[in-house]
């Protein structure tokens, strides 16, 4: 019996080594954090990049003055881009298309998918206003030919046309198409296309870095217990789970 326990005692440490993770206490972690240096200028650039990419043109201008950070794009181009976005967000798809073409006709010419989504949005707006016949006509003339070219376009077209079959369109299975989020989705696709055409990154860096933080924390989780940050708006450290 004693021999058996001896064996257990012998194997136990081996087990703990393989089972448990390295623990980094809050104190140790905070000390290490102190040694990490982030440049103010770099943070400013990150914020400027966010303002510019998301189209906060006035804020970007003010930030340039207040922080001395140069934007990485001509601020005038943001105004045009925002006008397009605004038109789309308020349901004025034709106006948005016209404005994009004024900006650069290549954008829609080279993006059939974006163009289809804009036309689809136009149809959704018609249905929203109850212009059923106009919507149907538009679907047959403008959308159907494109649907034939592309299977995924066809599916989306079918979903959209299906809206016409319901009296209470808001509560029908395809009601999500009428949601504001659908407008935002199309608007952000258009925004990205314009940015790309201006050889600017289409997404701000900040969200990518925040996602990278989620990823990096998850990765480190596999190897160690350490103070995590789960609430990004307070950035408070949590005690390591031991």
């Amino acid at each position: 019996m004693s021999h058996f326990y001896y064996l257990l005692g012998h194997f136990n440490p081996v087990e703990t080594v393989t089972m448990s993770k390295k623990v980094i206490t809050r104190e140790e972690w905070e000390k290490k954090l102190k040694d990490v240096n982030i440049r103010k200028e770099d943070m400013n650039k990150l914020v400027m990049n966010f303002l510019v990419t998301e189209g906060y043109v006035e804020a970007a201008e003010k930030f340039r003055i207040e922080s001395g950070t140069e934007p990485d794009i001509d601020l005038a181009t943001i105004t045009d881009r925002m006008a397009v976005k605004k038109a789309l967000q308020s349901g004025n798809v034709e106006d948005a298309i016209e404005k994009v073409n004024d900006l650069n006709p290549m954008i829609l010419d080279t993006n059939p998918q974006l163009y289809f989504h804009l036309q689809q949005q136009r149809m959704i707006e018609l249905i929203r206003c109850g212009k059923v016949e106009e919507a149907l006509e538009f679907a047959q003339e403008e959308l159907a030919p494109r649907g034939e070219e592309n299977q995924s376009f066809l599916e989306e077209l079918e979903r959209t046309v299906a809206l016409l079959a319901f009296d209470d369109i808001k509560n029908c299975p395809y009601g999500d198409l009428l949601d504001v989020s659908q407008r935002l989705k199309t608007a952000s696709e258009l925004n990205a296309a314009i940015l790309t055409s201006q050889s600017h990154e289409k997404d701000p860096k900040l969200p990518s870095l925040l996602k990278m933080l989620i990823w990096a924390q998850n990765q480190l989780d596999e190897k160690a217990a350490y103070p995590r940050i789960t609430n990004f708006t307070t950035a408070a450290l949590e005690d390591p789970a031991v």
Binding site: V36, I38, Y226
Partner: peptide
Amino acid sequence: LLKQLTLC
């Protein structure tokens, strides 16, 4: 957040 990311 950036410090946390760097340290992780």
